[in-house]
Nucleic acid binder design. Structure first.
Lengths: 220, 220
DNA sequence: CTCACTGTTATACCGTCGTATAATAAATAC
DNA sequence: GTATTTATTATACGACGGTATAACAGTGAG
């Protein structure tokens, strides 16, 4: 029998490749269908490498979850800080980034949901979720505060915290249903809906967020 | 060997019992950990009954998903229609019902997320999700419309639809993070946050929703 | 009380799971 | 070139998955 020809990759490349294959398999077939053999096949290696690089399949899956969450929050934060601009524009870009591709993605929401299902009973997943959620809230509060002061609005920490919780929920919900793309409405309208709702939640005048980034996306 | 003593139940009771056992197992261990043998043990029967009543394990799991979704939407709708009252009170009760027990539940959100993870690639789950989401949106629109007219606000169908999408996202997000109960804030404040945000999204005066149901929950 | 019906149990089967182990070959050092 | 290292493959093993089948027992009809 012919033994397969192979190439030695760097440890980082191999780990990354395996993690991406893991996410791809979990997204398509859930945690139950993502078997060690399938993941290995997708990464074009044999299943033994999983043990070699991660010790066990379970550890690899958890590492893949951390990778996914990191990518999601990183993309949103980058969009906000992209090019400074006024506070309203930064917050608006942050919101919009979460309801447009690449964050708006059926594959990513499938992954996210699958992992969320394990948060309740698996401490490892719970820790990753809590940390990422906190990071998201903190980022939102930091974006909200300057917007409030720019509008001469009360901006106590408690106040910003409540706004961040509500805004995060709005973003999560729109991202979720939009990504699933059930065809009940046009996902292209999500940025408009999201910004209008965000203005309402924060008690800002109409278009104070949408107007701050309308240069690129003029659609009135 | 002693054969187990058993009792013949009605078909409905047996099916219901198996479906509840399925949900319990999936909530605790995910789809991968919820094996036919474990589910059967939890329902205090042997695994063969799954085939007898549902044909296969997969069909039973899907039926359990439908049961869960039905319970969730039914509970929220009942809370709204509980005792008529003015439109603001009905909408407020609907919102609050989704961010308080029994809908606010770590087990239910775990289940919901686990199943959502399969919506993308499994047509059966996708259909159940789309139908339930549409039902939720329609219910919200029906609750929103009379509130808008009561406040002499524009209430076109398109307008109500956008409001419903945003409000649904807010509710989903708060329900989700609140149920996971990561300890980052007190879930007891969720109704207040939810109602204030809902007022903002709909452009209603402050306390127009919260005030409508403050008789039982006076906390100002 | 007896019998037939069928809900339910017990068991066996085959496939696949995760992973441990040994053989192999690609890369590196000299 | 040769030796050495170790990343990678190939294979085997025990456990467990879903489910098909046959035996059993609770239930109601006569």
């Amino acid at each position: 029998m012919e033994r397969k020809n192979f190439q030695r990759w760097s440890q980082d490349e191999r780990r990354q490749s395996l993690l991406e294959a893991t996410l791809a398999c979990v997204a398509e077939q859930g945690l139950e269908g993502a078997t060690a053999r399938q993941i290995a096949q997708r990464a074009d290696v044999t299943a033994g490498l999983i043990r070699h690089y991660f010790g066990s399949k379970e550890k690899m899956v958890q590492a893949a979850y951390e990778l996914l969450i990191g990518e999601l929050t990183h993309a949103a934060k980058c969009a906000a800080e992209a090019d400074g601009g006024e506070p309203q524009a930064q917050l608006a870009r942050f919101v919009v980034a979460n309801v447009t591709p690449p964050n708006l993605s059926a594959g990513k929401v499938s992954l996210w949901a699958t992992f969320i299902g394990r948060v309740r009973t698996d401490p490892g997943y719970a820790a990753v979720h809590r940390d990422s959620y906190r990071e998201f809230l903190v980022a939102l509060e930091a974006l909200i505060h300057p917007v409030l002061v720019a509008h001469d609005r009360k901006a106590t920490p408690a106040c910003c915290s409540r706004y961040a919780i509500a805004l995060n929920a709005l973003i999560d919900g729109l991202w979720l249903e939009g990504s699933l793309d059930h065809g009940l409405y046009d996902v292209g309208t999500l940025p408009t809906i999201a910004l209008a709702a965000a203005e309402g939640i924060l008690g800002l005048p109409a278009d104070s967020l949408a107007g701050a980034i309308s240069t690129t996306d003029n659609r009135s």
